[in-house]
Nucleic acid binder design. Sequence first.
DNA 1: TGCAAAATCGACGTCGTGTTGACAATGGAT
DNA 2: ATCCATTGTCAACACGACGTCGATTTTGCA
Lengths: 210, 210
Amino acid sequence: MSASEPVAERPRRPDNPTKGDRREQAILDAAEALLEERGLDPVTVEQIAAGAGISRASLYFYFGSKQEVVTALVARTMGVTRDDADTLAAEVDVPPQTTIERSIRRIEKQWLDHGVVMRAAVDNAPSNPEVREIWRGTVDLYVDLLGDVLVRAGVPDDGGPTGARALAKGLAWMGERNFYIASAISKAEVRRVAETVLAIWFSTIEDRVG
Amino acid sequence: MSASEPVAERPRRPDNPTKGDRREQAILDAAEALLEERGLDPVTVEQIAAGAGISRASLYFYFGSKQEVVTALVARTMGVTRDDADTLAAEVDVPPQTTIERSIRRIEKQWLDHGVVMRAAVDNAPSNPEVREIWRGTVDLYVDLLGDVLVRAGVPDDGGPTGARALAKGLAWMGERNFYIASAISKAEVRRVAETVLAIWFSTIEDRVG
DNA sequence: TGCAAAATCGACGTCGTGTTGACAATGGAT
DNA sequence: ATCCATTGTCAACACGACGTCGATTTTGCA
């Protein structure tokens, strides 16, 4: 913000690259790498620690549990998705269909780039309340965003189960599930499914606006 | 195959209500009950065994692992859903919309009656290949059934990502995900979501048939 | 009644998690 | 330069849950 206080105001800030902070990132990187080759369940704390170049006991200095590691990893990845949603929400002067298409494209890209972590998030949500909150919160961002867009497009909303908001919720979770399944198959399948998802969004609008 | 060997050919058939077979069912019942109050993860083999009135070691006489218990439980519940799909598939002389509505209603009922097991199935699918197969196989039954219905309703299918089959797949998984979330909230929410899901199915058809 | 198959269980080995307490490195103030 | 609190590291331990083994009892049928 201001250039009058140039350096070293707070010694223990996340932007202050402490030795330990680097280790923390190394742990998350190791976890993500392990996630890539094995699944999530088979990955052990021992392996993550080894991947980060420390002992298992040392890992517990940084994270209180295996769950916390996963939570931090998911949070790191979902930060991007949340920023995307904010960016999209700021675009008010474009036609509704454009916002929807851009949203789906962003989500598609996220699944293409970070499929492993995204799938781990979905898989862990049932047993990890923190991850569940992060995940649902992020989906909700898009539910709200696209709910508004649907209303703007002319889809009526009486607050009931066939109103714009309810439809947006149903359609958003349709995307989530279909991308999840596709991302476990191949990147080509993710791209294919993006078209299907988009088609259903558009059909729903078309039919409800007329 | 042949009727020349009338009775008692195999003394260990599932329709032969052996003492042990009853225990097997008792174990599944106990597992289902435990699933109801606690989650799936926190349930221990010890508790399931206790619920069935046997020791932990004895349970391993019937099932090779905790996973196998869950698998058997899921299989038992999904049997009904599969039968439903067969029944629906046999109804060829009714209008497409009717088949779709009836399908959604059957699925809705299944989530209302067996939400706990259904959710356990979804939660375990990632880490349990057998459950995953059962689950996906059942969903596929409806994908095929409703894909045919879509074609019959006049939705074109070029085999691509916006063809009738692809749409049916996307819409079927939309239902799965939305029912899953709703069933963790309340029965009322399940009923509400059924309306939303139905609305999206109908909108997709309407827009694509015209 | 006899007896093989079915069923039961105590005790054990293993694996992965998380904790403890003692020890080493780090880096800023003096 | 050195002191010392903070930060970081780890071996060893305790615990809980899973799955196995061998010995023992129960069952049902000839």
